[in-house]
Design a protein around this nucleic acid. Structure first.
Length: 429
RNA sequence: GGAGGGAUGGCAGAGUGGACGAUUGCGACGGUCUUGAAAACCGUUGAGGGGCAACCCUCCGGGGGUUCGAAUCCCCCUCCCUCCGCCA
């Protein structure tokens, strides 16, 4: 959530900033009106409540003194006020709920230095790494689904049999490779991040905290009977880990990482990228996440990006870094860098990490604060996160990039310790 | 899933209708004393909302109810503990 007080005190800035996303601002206007009405009702209601409390104290005093008739007179007066109080109370509840409902779907203010733009097409490519378009040879120009099938390490057909389209299954060395990628990502970040193994299903409030609900319910799997959501990313449970807590400044930045399965309905993309691993309903991912102070946020953001990049470089993959424009960053984010890995077999740039700074938007939803060393009231933390490594697309890029003339796949050296000594993936027999 | 017991401030733990936003202890912070520290003593110490301010309001797991007045009484829910059942 953005700060209601900022809407009150600095409406022009908020409106101008949100306008950069290219969204309609009538919801914001409405919030402003409701807020004004809400405060008026609240003030009036509080005055009546105060009076009732005063009268009740008087009743108590009179009764103790045995002045029962007088007590009853005062009680009767208080009874009358009670009716008025209940009416104002109901209206206050309604206004408060209406404001929250609207505020929950108002996106975050893009950072001033996020580039202008309306869509994906306006994202800024900051740089390419390990990228030489002329270096690829014919044996690398085979899509991973063909490579995977030939080597017996990817079995899409049987996954579809058991779970339907857009599910996948790794086999043999392919499954080991998928696991190796996760272990590498965890080990590479263990120097600074606490490893967490969170639940894969969460309550509605947990999904609201990150911004995945209420707006994007179509994108997530929901177990109706128990009202639980399958997590679309470890960001969801990791952000709620500190929900409703007050952290100490000395504990910040607090860095967490988790390897989880991620579940996405991909509701808007039926029929797109249906082959292979480009878009699947369930995939494994290692997420890295931090809570920090506003002052630390820029450094933490750069560090998360550097860590995600380092893994791709170590795997010998080409990638590019995108600075997402104001019109394309996610609802909760203020600034996002995307990492896209180049997959030569399908000749596509595949998004494999979004490294985002959320400011205090998620912290306000999740109520995560910290106390400054110099004391004073608790203030909202900043949250940031990104994928260290998302398995399917990186798996695809590895298999295509490192395919050798004889059709086998050379395993990148950093993965050797996790591959039971194997250095090459040959046909399964 | 069934039966019983619980949920109070950073923690421990009082409080069964009115002077309780809450006794007390521990912890933390400030001070006195001390060369310094400890001990002792004195004081401060929850969160949120509204208001320029004085100040007002809310919060005792969550929601509803009774009452002039609820931490306290009633109803529902959630979570924790004990026992039984089931189970990797």
């Amino acid at each position: 959530m953005i700060d209601l007080r900022q809407i009150r005190s600095d409406y022009p800035t908020v409106a101008a900033s949100l306008a950069r996303r290219g969204i309609a601002l009538d919801g914001l206007e409405r919030v402003r009106e409701l807020d004004e009405a809400h405060r008026a009702v609240e003030t009036e209601r509080n005055g009546i409540r105060s009076e009732i409390k005063e009268l009740s104290r008087t009743v108590g005093g009179l009764r103790r003194d045995g002045r029962m008739d007088e007590a009853e007179t005062v009680a009767a007066r208080s009874r009358q006020l009670g009716d008025a109080e209940r009416a104002l109370d109901a209206s206050e509840d309604e206004l408060k709920a209406a404001i929250r409902e609207l505020l929950l779907v108002v996106p975050n203010l893009p950072a001033d230095d996020a580039p202008d733009g309306a869509s994906e097409a306006d994202n800024v490519v900051l740089r390419h790494e390990g990228w030489d378009p002329d270096s690829y040879v014919d044996h690398q120009r085979v899509p991973h689904w063909d490579v995977g099938e030939a080597l017996g390490i990817l079995d899409v057909e049987r996954a579809v049999k058991m779970s339907g389209s857009m599910f996948t299954m790794f086999r043999g060395a392919g499954a080991t490779l998928a696991r190796a990628l996760c272990q590498l990502a965890l080990d590479a970040n263990a120097d600074a991040f606490e490893e967490i193994r969170p639940p894969s299903m969460v309550l509605t409030d947990t999904m609201i905290s990150t911004g995945h609900l209420p707006k994007f319910s179509d994108d997530a799997y929901h177990a109706e009977r128990d009202d639980l959501w399958s997590i679309p990313t470890a960001e969801v449970p990791l952000t709620s880990l500190a929900r409703d807590e007050i952290l100490a400044e000395d504990d910040l930045p607090m860095r967490l990482m988790a390897h989880t399965a991620c579940f996405r309905r991909e509701a808007g993309s039926a029929g797109r990228d249906t082959r292979g691993l480009l878009r699947v309903h369930e995939f494994d991912k290692v997420e890295i996440l931090a809570y920090c102070t506003p002052e630390q946020a820029a450094d933490v953001h750069a560090d998360l990006l550097a860590r995600a990049e380092r893994l791709l470089a170590q795997l010998g993959l080409a990638y590019r870094v995108l600075d997402l424009c104001a019109g394309d960053i996610g609802q909760s984010s203020r600034r996002t860098f995307d990492l896209e890995v180049y997959s030569p077999g399908v000749d596509q740039w595949l998004e494999c990490s979004s490294v985002s700074w959320f400011g205090d938007y998620q912290a306000r939803r999740a109520h995560i604060r910290y106390r400054r060393n110099e004391g004073g009231s608790p203030v909202m933390v900043h949250t940031l996160n990104g994928s260290a490594l998302a398995v399917p697309r990186v798996w695809a890029a590895v298999v295509e990039t490192h395919r050798q003339p004889d059709g086998t796949v050379a395993i990148p050296e950093v993965l050797h310790p996790y591959m039971r000594g194997a250095t090459v993936i040959g046909p399964r027999r």
